[in-house]
Design a protein around this nucleic acid. Structure first.
Lengths: 289, 289
DNA sequence: CGGTAATTTGAATCTTTTCAAGTTGAGTGG
DNA sequence: CCACTCAACTTGAAAAGATTCAAATTACCG
């Protein structure tokens, strides 16, 4: 089930298709300022008239690193296409996933302070990345005051995103973390023009668990539990969200013995009654405390 | 024990004392740009010659809010003196502490994106805060290119600080979290010119626990355990760090039954032998995995 | 000096992790 | 094209770690 590749769901514009074709041929491309602003979700009007700035693209194969920890900082990066993860590595070599940058996301900001990157960005798929030399980045702000305010806004957005992750790690159960992770992915896919209801995960259970402060087994079990109560369908990397609102506010699933009772009740009845039991199990999902 | 008030440990400069006196009289004061740069740890040379910018101070009593969630954004804030906490509040009213701003820290950045604050800043003691209108903040950057780069650096620093918190929440045991929290406080106090070895906590166990993703009981127990093995001394809010390096790299304390055995051994012997057992328990602290 | 908030500590419980084993799936070479 | 292999994933059972609930003690504010 659910093996539809992402590319078939994608709502590709004519421009995007031409661009992809071009990339496939030359593996290289440039973006102008207004395209970059558009990607970063900065009101287009601000950067529309500036064509002095051109930004080079660069291709990365799955597994390649865009930048590594300790590497001298001189670039910011914007995802043009593909999926990545950013990680920090502590003194004993343990990774901590900080985020999963995708189309329109800016990364590398951590390098400004300290003049070297404190994180590592790894491509999870083949990626096309826009290179933004920090010097150019500064020059843009100087050239246009409104744009500069918008740039601060983009950095602030990153900060808020991280704060939200802190909130997730600091106070939610495993189930709530996984649920919100799925909702957050859903929203980002929607923004990108993909389906927010069904999509393929681009990262492993290990990476998800690491990101959420859980083990891969807990992530797997939680997916299975959500699947069992009908909140989602999972098959490996393929996900379908059946009740986004429930996922959004979920705090805990009913304890498994209660679910087992529900299962038992379901088993006693037959086909027709079956559906009602399913619905009941779904309704039993707890929301706020 | 350890009731020395912070003010006695403080190494107060002549300027700072005059300033404090002035504040006590008028409850109001202005800072110029070079003073602000100094506070933010921006190389002094950059802002030294600019006297066009003046920033107003404002007093907050313990418990007062500097800004609240949803409030329209138009200011950034720099701590001149005192201690605060910043929190987010989720849809069901639960707080999550994000940080404890103190002297020299910039906060309010989260408000830039979205034009309203997404966090709340609460004074934990009487505070003096420098108000930096965002317009002025932008103007500073425009007036001086080098300064602008430094400003981005300060924002980047905040981002890195949050990433480090994410790493802590995502992968460390309760004991390691508390240990690193103490080390981090120690370093900040040192930077401020206070003692990094002994200090008073400005926040409750509840607030520490919330910040670290733990319950207040776990924090209290962990303090007690560190105290028992001689890593620190605790008495209410008063803390003495006896082995900062051990705290920095600590992953787990030996299981309590092992410590109990050590205690038993200690009980059998007497005064002189006592000290050796203590040392042994200290040495037993595990570091890397 | 009384009253409330903060802290400590114990015991039981619950969640998540750890360890272990088996399954599935994609890619590779014969 | 199929067997083989490795990584990813799933699931179970036991163990560990942290939380919850409860009670007692200690500070601190007015």
């Amino acid at each position: 089930m659910l093996n539809t590749p992402m590319s078939e769901i994608r709502s590709t514009s004519a421009t995007a298709r031409n661009v992809s074709a071009a990339v496939a041929r030359q593996g290289k491309l440039w973006s102008n300022l207004s395209e970059v602003c558009d990607l970063l979700r900065i009101p287009a009007s601000l950067g529309a008239f500036q064509d002095d700035f051109q930004f080079q693209h660069m291709q990365f194969k799955s597994g390649q690193r865009v930048h590594t920890i300790g590497q001298p900082f001189d670039m910011l990066y914007i995802v043009y296409s593909g999926f990545l993860k950013t990680v920090i590595i502590d003194e004993s070599g343990n990774e901590q996933v900080l985020g999963f940058p995708m189309k329109g996301d800016l990364f590398g900001i951590d390098g400004i302070h300290g003049k070297q990157y404190s994180t590592e960005a790894v491509a999870l798929s083949n990626c096309e990345i826009i290179l933004v030399p920090f010097k150019a980045f500064l020059a843009i702000g100087r050239a246009n005051a409104e744009l500069e305010a918008a740039i601060y806004g983009v950095m602030s957005r990153e900060l808020v995103r991280e704060q939200s992750l802190i909130g997730t790690l600091g106070s939610l159960s495993a189930e709530a973390r996984v649920a919100r992770f799925l909702v957050s992915l859903s929203e980002r896919f929607s923004d990108m023009g993909y389906s927010g209801k069904q999509f393929n995960l681009r990262m492993t259970r290990q990476e998800i668990g690491n990101y959420l402060g859980l083990t891969l087994e807990t992530v797997s079990r939680t997916f299975s539990a959500f699947n069992a109560v009908g909140l989602i369908s999972v098959d490996q990397r393929a996900i379908v969200l059946h009740d986004i609102q429930a996922l959004r506010t979920l705090r805990r699933l009913p304890p498994s013995h209660a679910r087992a009772k529900a299962e038992a009740a379901k088993a006693l009845k037959l086909a027709a009654a079956n559906k009602e039991a399913q619905a009941a199990a779904g309704a039993e999902v707890q929301a706020a405390v």
